[in-house]
């Protein structure tokens, strides 16, 4: 091949290859972009579904709590008031006690009504929602619960808060139902970069190899991933269970 031929071949090959490169380059980028948009769309759908499920579950849990509280707390107070009132027919001086019991019942009713007001619930922050839950555990003497908040509280997007709260609620519910624990310690650690939540009970724990908690635990992990956070559940038989959740703000 002489130099003329080489130059002519190069002169033809260079523009053709450049055109091909441009086409390939832009089509690769366009395809990747479309795929990513599709993935984002799907991720959004999954997130919305999980969010809706979390909201429904929180509502169900709240209804269960109301029924529990009406039956075990206010119901008991009303029964007591009824007995006292019957006794007061013979001993009128007991009317003061009847009045006191009914007063306590009314206070409990007010507290409950405030707690389940949807408007109040909507405007609750994660910190407030968790502390109300802890207060309730202590009030009803389900478990000796303690909440500690470290650092200055950072604002978190409402939908993310719902999912975070639902994860914690699921953990609390497992603790109360299955762990036979006497104490529950919850710590919310706020820093500039992340919110780190730890919750631990002193219950019976479980062996990790058992598929304990099953779907519940899986759900908690899936939800944690959806809000770009990491969730770890550690448990030791006879010593208790601990949850560690890290949510990055950025």
């Amino acid at each position: 091949m002489d130099e003329k031929e080489i130059i002519i071949i190069a002169a033809i090959a260079i523009p053709i290859s450049l055109v091909i490169i441009v086409i390939v380059l832009f089509s690769v980028f366009a395809r990747r972009k479309n795929r990513m948009l599709q993935e984002q769309e799907e991720a959004k759908k999954v997130f919305d579904r999980e969010l809706a499920e979390s909201q429904i579950e929180i509502r169900e849990e709240t209804l269960r709590n109301i029924s529990w509280e009406l039956h075990d707390n206010i119901g008991q107070l009303m029964t007591l008031a009824k007995i006292q009132a019957q006794m007061a027919q013979e001993k009128p001086e007991m009317m003061t006690e009847v009045s006191e019991t009914i007063g306590t019942g009314i206070d409990e009713l007010r507290a409950l009504s405030k707690l389940i007001n949807p408007e109040a619930l909507k405007s609750l922050s994660l910190k407030e929602a968790v502390s109300l839950e802890i207060e309730r555990f202590n009030r009803l003497k389900f478990i000796e619960a303690k909440l500690t908040i470290n650092g200055s509280v950072m604002p978190i997007e409402a939908n993310t808060q719902i999912i975070l709260f639902r994860i914690l609620q699921e953990f609390f519910s497992n603790t109360i139902k299955h762990s036979k624990a006497s104490t529950l310690k919850v710590v919310l650690n706020y820093s500039e970069e992340e919110l780190s939540i730890t919750a631990e009970d002193n219950g019976v724990g479980f062996d990790k190899s058992d598929d304990f908690l099953g779907i519940g635990l899986k759900n908690m992990k899936t939800r944690a991933q959806l809000i770009n956070s990491t969730l770890r559940i550690d448990s030791e038989e006879g010593k208790g269970t601990a949850l560690t959740l890290k949510y990055k703000f950025v």
């Binding site: 080489i6 130059i7 190069a10 002169a11 260079i14 290859s17 450049l18 490169i21 380059l25």
Partner: peptide
């Protein structure tokens, strides 16, 4: 990217042989 993909072969050809008044004007 486009410039160097196209220019690299030209530079290599020019470094092999370069003569004035030849077909080089195409390149």
């Amino acid at each position: 990217f486009l410039f160097y993909i196209g220019y690299l072969p030209i530079k290599i050809i020019r470094s092999w042989f370069y003569k004035e008044n030849s077909f080089f004007w195409i390149l």
